[in-house]
């Protein structure tokens, strides 16, 4: 695994995160589900990391660990140089202000009995933002208009069910960003939305991050959207990052066989005529009982004997591009 030096100015740095789920039942007692299996990365302020991979590769679990919705089995996370474990224990509220999350389904993230004004104002109250009711209300209006919901008075007194998915997702993003967090996790924020409004939400998210200098982990299985928004990408397979680097470097020059297959299989609009699909055999495996070798070996098109018992190291191939496969040049 690559080790990255924890510097003060890193917005978030994650080292060797493991998350094993215990199974119940006699037979399965010794078979942990290795959802996240040794992930390390770090992000500068304002940097966006896209995490891509198949379903079940642990990308959502990773996101939830980063904002402490799940406890990691082991590993350390520090946000702005402060270990988040300590921060969370001392002052959970302060932790929530530094790390926020944007969820996939905007319809589920709001209390159905709260108006939009109440949703936003209760967040402010909880975190002691603003002095009086009127001040908070004025801040709400300001916030909504900044987020493209004009005129804000139209939205303030509506309930979540009276708004469309796109509008709700905007409010969900605004609610997270109003705390001015150091770092946000966006877990598939646009996959529930319609094609025609996705673009605006993505732009809004990217702009807010750049304005507020917030680092973001953008989890998605949509490769073109990830390319659009992120500065760096990490490709996950069975709980591990198999390839990471600057977005275009990884996308246009994929080295790991899994990344290659993933990218060739995700159909793109601008190259649909001469697309060569790399077939990988089998179904996405479950993270139980992973053998000693490379995780991708059973499905890999260029696997060989040694892949089955040697766990590949992550190697730097220049330009911040790391790959966990020893046979990339063949």
């Amino acid at each position: 695994m690559q080790t990255l030096i924890t510097a003060e100015e890193k917005a978030i740095s994650v080292e060797n995160i493991y998350k094993y789920y215990k199974q119940r039942g006699k037979r399965q007692r010794n078979q942990d589900i290795k959802s996240v299996d040794g992930v390390s990365f770090s992000l500068n302020k304002g940097e966006i990391l896209g995490v891509i991979g198949e379903s079940g590769c642990g990308k959502s679990t990773l996101g939830r660990i980063l904002v402490k919705l799940e406890e990691p089995t082991s590993g350390s996370i520090s946000i702005n140089g402060v270990p988040s474990q300590n921060l969370f224990k001392q002052d959970p509220l302060a932790f929530r202000r530094t790390a926020q999350m944007i969820f996939q389904n905007p319809f589920d993230t709001f209390d159905p009995r709260y108006t939009i004004a109440k949703v936003l104002i209760s967040t402010m109250k909880l975190h002691h933002i603003g002095e009086s009711k009127n001040e908070r209300l004025a801040m709400c209006i300001d916030l909504l208009e900044k987020g493209g919901l004009k005129p804000a008075t139209e939205y303030l007194h509506r309930y979540p069910h009276e708004l469309s998915g796109g509008q709700l997702q905007r409010i969900s993003i605004l609610r997270s960003m109003l705390l001015e967090p150091m770092f946000v996790v966006a877990d598939e924020p646009v996959s529930m939305l319609d094609v025609s409004i996705r673009a605006d939400i993505i732009n809004m998210l990217a702009d807010l991050c750049k304005q507020e200098n917030t680092a973001m982990v953008f989890i998605s299985h949509d490769i073109t959207t990830t390319r659009y928004i992120s500065d760096r990408v990490a490709v996950m397979y069975l709980g591990r990052i198999v390839e990471t680097g600057p977005t275009d470097e990884v996308m246009h020059n994929p080295q790991h066989p899994y990344t290659r297959a993933l990218i060739s299989n995700s159909v793109q609009l601008d190259s649909f005529e001469n697309q060569q699909i790399i077939h990988i055999a089998g179904e996405p495996p479950t993270p139980i009982n992973i053998g000693p070798g490379c995780r991708f070996a059973p499905r890999c098109y260029q696997s060989r004997e040694s892949c089955n018992h040697e766990d590949p190291e992550s190697t730097h191939i220049g330009n911040g591009h790391y790959v966990s496969c020893p046979y990339i040049n063949e």
């Binding site: 025609s196 073109t224 390319r227 793109q268």
Partner: peptide, 30 residues
Amino acid sequence: VLVNPLHPYTQGLLKSIPTFKGEKKNIRGI
């Protein structure tokens, strides 16, 4: 249709999808 869309709606739909190759063009929704 996809290479040379003529209807403003089709054009809008295609503009809202990010590209994989080339420059990162700004996408925008309808």
